[in-house]
Design a protein around this nucleic acid. Structure first.
Length: 268
DNA sequence: GCACATGTTCTCGG
DNA sequence: CCCGAGAACATGTG
């Protein structure tokens, strides 16, 4: 799923069903690839914990518990965390059972997702190396993060230590909206371009959250619904279709081993 | 069979 | 240390 808007939508929905609820029991699949903390430890630590709240850092979701411990979750490419009734198939890796017959399901086909238990007050190297969150980043922060990077701006936006939360879809959409070519070197962005980029990033990420995120294949909101922002993409997956601004066909190129989509006419 | 997929992390050269 | 290219991880779809 999983870029910032999708993770934020899931976070908000989980918060409404999980806040102040207690985990009655935990089930884990015998499959261990998904677990950074061994499943037996996870079961022991999570049982009987009360959820105080849900937070997010970049693409990570954190369950905050009553004893100051936390559960760190990443959804990888195909991860789903649902609080609505979900069929139990071979791709379900963990269930958190609450009272009133409710349950939270962790499902992930490709198993690039991860869960890790963080002891009371402890952080994780995964969190510590994240840059500023893309939803609230300022132009100054963005400028200082990019100023010494001699790499393509697209690659810089995908680097979670520069900016946390942006992935392939929203990097392409933000660069299109800010009229910056994905291959432009990050440190060569002008003040004007940095200004447009920070504004457009926020505008697009907020709009995507309002639409429930982008469902390309696997992503589901925590209530089981599909996202809707895929219908508003201007360039992602639009190779060959006319640019909304100038009608020149959208092109595709490969950067950091990922597809980049851009308008060869309006993005310089 | 082939290409490709919303992500992260590691290795190997230059 | 910086950077890019490529691979690895596991599984599915067209």
């Amino acid at each position: 799923m999983p870029e910032l808007p999708e993770v934020e939508v899931v976070r908000r929905q989980l918060a409404t069903t999980l806040c102040n609820r207690r985990i009655a029991s935990v089930w884990t699949a015998p499959d261990s690839y998904f677990f950074l903390t061994p499943p037996r430890t996870l079961v022991r630590r999570l049982q009987k914990r009360r959820v105080l709240g849900l937070s997010r850092r970049g693409k990570y979701i954190l369950f905050d518990f009553d004893d100051e411990s936390r559960l760190l979750c990443h959804l990888g490419m195909t991860g789903q965390i649902t609080s609505s009734p979900t069929p139990r198939d071979a791709h379900v890796h963990m269930l958190l059972r609450l009272d009133r017959n409710q349950c939270v399901t962790f499902r992930d086909v490709r198993k690039f997702g991860k869960v890790e238990w963080l002891g009371p007050g402890l952080s994780s190297p995964r969190l510590d190396k994240l840059g500023p969150d893309a939803l609230t980043v300022t132009r100054r922060q963005l400028a200082s993060g990019l100023s010494r990077r001699r790499i393509a701006i697209k690659n810089a936006l995908l680097d979670q230590s520069v900016l946390a939360g942006v992935g392939n879809i929203y990097a392409d959409e933000a660069l299109y909206a800010a009229r910056i070519r994905p291959t432009k070197k990050a440190h060569l962005l002008t003040r004007l371009e940095l200004d447009r980029l920070s504004r457009q990033l926020r505008r697009i990420l907020e709009a995507a959250v309002r639409r429930g995120g982008s469902t390309i294949n696997d992503y589901l909101q925590a209530d089981g619904q599909l996202g809707g922002y895929q219908n508003w993409h201007a360039v992602y997956g639009k190779t060959g279709t006319p640019c909304k601004r100038c009608k020149v066909p959208i092109e595709r190129c490969v950067l950091a081993a990922r597809s980049s989509h851009f308008c060869p006419n309006c993005q310089s």
